[in-house]
């Protein structure tokens, strides 16, 4: 089967805005106050994706390892900013150790997928490396925010229980092991749940995109299976690494719990 794609023309793209108008009308009728946000969101979608499209054309054409890895680094930095902003922890500074943990765990999974499983040559071929890294970073970014939020909240709300363990002789690891376990589980569950529902409840974006581009669904599902398992792996790796680092930062010398209420 020769892949045949029906291209979306400018008028058709403009017509798709009717859905935004529908949402805007709902906001007006129901006084949701979402009009401005909707407008900004739509403009950003058009601008950001257009920019990304041109950037990708440029990067794919150039085929430079340095540029590809630079984009990878920039994507992680952006994710780091988003996670850091969402967690809003003021008593524990985590930015650069978190960057290190994210860089290592994402790099390991992305290189294994592109170089070993997909077999791209070279392993950093931008056409494969960038979209795969994007999926990995985008998905585990949410997992990290959930896990860190849970870790800090539980260490605060269960401070008495943690200190009770410490008072009986526990070290920081022993005193917080149930909380750490809960935080890691909370981050990993969405990607495991996604594996349960895939193909039954929803068709994932990547697979849908490939099918719409004319790729044989049987070839598309192979990619999608790789994507699903790589997301579970990368989420697990990055969540474990970042949560353990965060836990380490929450305790001071002498295994003192540094997080305080408020």
């Amino acid at each position: 089967m020769t892949p045949q794609i029906i291209e979306i023309g400018s008028w058709q793209l403009a017509f798709s805005l009717v859905f935004v108008l529908l949402a805007g009308a709902a906001s007006l009728v129901w006084h949701l106050g979402l009009g401005r946000t909707l407008l900004v969101g739509t403009l950003r979608t058009f601008a950001q994706l257009a920019l990304m499209g041109y950037a990708l054309v440029f990067i794919f054409r150039l085929e430079s390892a340095a540029l590809t890895l630079g984009v990878f680094g920039a994507m992680i930095l952006a994710a780091l900013q988003i996670v850091h902003g969402r967690v809003r922890e003021r008593q524990v500074t985590l930015l650069w150790p978190m960057f290190g943990a994210m860089l290592i765990s994402y790099a390991v999974v992305t290189v294994v997928v592109t170089g070993v499983i997909v077999g791209a040559k070279p392993w950093w071929k931008p056409q494969y490396f960038i979209p795969i890294a994007g999926m990995i970073i985008g998905n585990s970014m949410s997992a990290l925010a959930i896990s860190l939020d849970r870790l800090f909240a539980d260490l605060r709300s269960q401070r008495d229980l943690v200190e009770m363990h410490l008072c009986l002789g526990a070290d920081a690891r022993e005193a917080s092991q149930d909380i750490v376990r809960g935080a890691i589980r909370a981050g990993m569950i969405p990607s495991i749940n996604a594996m349960m529902g895939v193909g039954i409840v929803f068709l994932p974006g990547m697979m849908t995109g490939q099918i719409l581009s004319g790729v044989n669904p049987l070839a598309a599902i192979r990619y999608q299976i790789v994507v699903m398992v790589m997301l579970v792996g990368s989420t697990a790796l990055s969540t474990v690494a970042v949560v353990l680092l965060a836990r380490h930062r929450c305790f001071g010398p002498g295994d003192r719990l540094l997080l305080r209420a408020g």
Binding site: D160, E163, M164, L166, C167, L168, G169, A170, D171, D255
Partner: peptide, 18 residues
Amino acid sequence: PGLLRRRVSYVQQTPALL
């Protein structure tokens, strides 16, 4: 710290139990 806290034992105001 573990050895110290075994010898100097702190019992919290609010009982903390598993």
